[in-house]
Amino acid sequence: MPPESTLRPLVRLSRVSPYLTVAGVVLAGGLLFVAAMGVRLILAPRAPTAMKLTTYECGVDPVGEGWAQTNVRYFLYAFLYVVFAVDAVYLFPWATVIRSPDLGLASLVEMAIFILVVLIGLAHAARRGLLRWV
């Protein structure tokens, strides 16, 4: 087994702050976007005629407005989305503090209240018959 001193890397990855990692990922994503749009700017053909910028409606002149009305009963999809998905997002940071000695118990009580409130909404949805398989 070679000695430790010859294997020590310049920067130990475990010592890099997680915030720096996230910043690196965000920067890489932004650079990718800038590179792609930059390549498009210097390489792509463009011919912005008036006809090309018209609204698309299957080749005919568009009629009416861009807004359309939907039935209000579809609010139930938004309701169930809040109950399941938005609630799950708030549960993820709880997992990082539940084992800590000073925050663990307090966070349990707070999250219990939060989940209770969300459960009341879920019970209402179940009473309305929204959770039955169609």
């Binding site: 498009r40 210097i42 053909p45 463009r46």
Partner: peptide
Amino acid sequence: MPGIGVLNDDAPRPIKVVLN
């Protein structure tokens, strides 16, 4: 003004081959 990107006109042949 219709046209093409500044680099495409003067691009060397290998780049044009790759783009095509």
